[in-house]
Design a binder for these strands. Structure first.
Lengths: 245, 245
DNA sequence: CATCGCTGTGTATGTCATGCACTGAGTGCA
DNA sequence: TGCACTCAGTGCATGACATACACAGCGATG
């Protein structure tokens, strides 16, 4: 049906130790991936085509296929190349909540630095080296919590998915995730929703639940992930207490 | 850049009261959408092309464009046509937690009945009539909680996003979301992850955090959304207590 | 009866991923 | 030195795909 996930994994996992062959001239995997990331950064995922990347590198389209099995594989390589984990997450943190919040902040920055990540055709659970490094760092934050390993895995999956979808929503709402598009959405909703069919929703709209307060600062008008994250972390806290008690 | 979201909304919201013109012969919006949904149900989203739908209806490709502005609009119509809200969610529930759990169960069923929904190119916050009906029903479940309307909106967004991504993961894991592909993932992980680079992850794997217990029943081996949902609802409960106290 | 507008057709364009046959440049071996 | 082989890159081709445009029939309305 669709490409099996393991496509391209050999490339990612194969030469973790070998630094890089990197020929003086001609194509190379890393050059291709670098160019593809540049294209995606400036033009979005939809701008990423084999032809465009080859052109940017001064080669023909088919030359890319000497280094990459398929476009899907290239997307996977792009993802991994961009999803490196910042060093500040390496040091453990004795406050799991603070640790996870830091982890989320780093994710948020990474996802917004390359917002095309969130619209990659999703292909299952994390599997690339950097994805797993993220997972590892998050698990480490939960080290002292007394949760079972299965609990921890579930929590990490939950938090990671939350960050991904929230980042997606944030970028969907507008190129700058600005408050304006939220406002546009809000007024659009206000016009469509009648109290007959959507009583609870109408109430929420009238209460301004979909607005930002008019005196919000610029920063407050950025789409924010903290509300949902706080709920999730509260829930994790409850679980931790429950497991301990 | 990409199609603006409001494309097709006029079709969805325009004639809520008029039942349907529905000519005796020839094309019609509803026939097109019905055919498209059938195609997607059997062949997945990737099988949905204008040509294929037209062929199935016995018309030329371009005939569809008399009724639909673009493929994107058609996808939106497909989504809404399939996302109807079951009647049991109409009656309010005095236990918000139970109510949200029922809501989630209905979503889960709906998302799995048409698993292509979860891989639609996401285009921002909910906006179609049925999407907003879902939102309304979820908000209603939170009626007696003492949360602010903004709180409720945040909670609903959180829960809805959780269900969507979890359903996506569930279908990505395998056509039947069976335990087998989870097991395959687990062993794949086990082979890739070394304790040097991924200490916490290695620990989790060794503890079987990514396995199902070998004596799990068939039902237990289905990918399950309850763990994450319970965390989220626990977090909501904390918020409710906090707002009340 | 003439006109108009609607619905469907036919044809064309441009983009896309990707298969296949080929070429030239190197490289190891006889 | 010469030959075979491999590897990187090329050129051409194919088959999806979405969608634009010009046109044709047909029914209703003047």
């Amino acid at each position: 049906m669709n490409d099996k996930l393991p496509a391209g994994l050999d490339l990612l996992w194969g030469r973790l130790d070998e630094p890089a062959p990197e020929p003086r001239q001609g194509l190379s995997l890393s050059r291709i991936v670098r160019a593809a990331v540049e294209v995606a950064d400036t033009g979005g995922l939809e701008a990423v085509s084999m032809a465009r990347i080859a052109e940017r590198l001064g080669f023909t389209t088919m030359a890319l296929y000497r280094h990459v099995k398929s476009k899907n594989e290239m997307l996977l390589l792009m993802l991994d190349s961009v999803a490196s984990v910042p060093a500040e997450l390496d040091e453990p943190c004795d406050d799991w909540r603070l640790g996870l919040q830091r982890w989320c902040r780093s994710q948020w920055l990474m996802l917004h630095a390359h917002s095309w990540i969130v619209q990659l055709p999703v292909t299952g659970p994390p599997i690339t080296p950097n994805q797993l490094t993220w997972t590892d760092r998050a698990l480490r934050m939960l080290h002292d919590t007394g949760l079972t390993e299965a609990d921890k895995a579930g929590v990490v999956l939950l938090v990671a998915n939350y960050m991904l979808t929230t980042a997606r929503l944030s970028t969907d709402l507008g190129p700058a995730a600005s408050g304006e598009s939220v406002a546009a959405y809000s007024t659009l909703l206000g016009g469509l929703v009648d109290a007959q069919r959507f009583p609870a929703l109408r109430t929420a709209i009238d209460a301004g639940a979909f607005d930002y307060p008019p005196d919000a600062t610029e920063e407050e008008r950025q789409f924010d992930y903290s509300f949902g994250l706080d709920r999730i972390l509260d829930g994790v806290e409850t679980l931790i207490r429950h497991r301990a008690g």
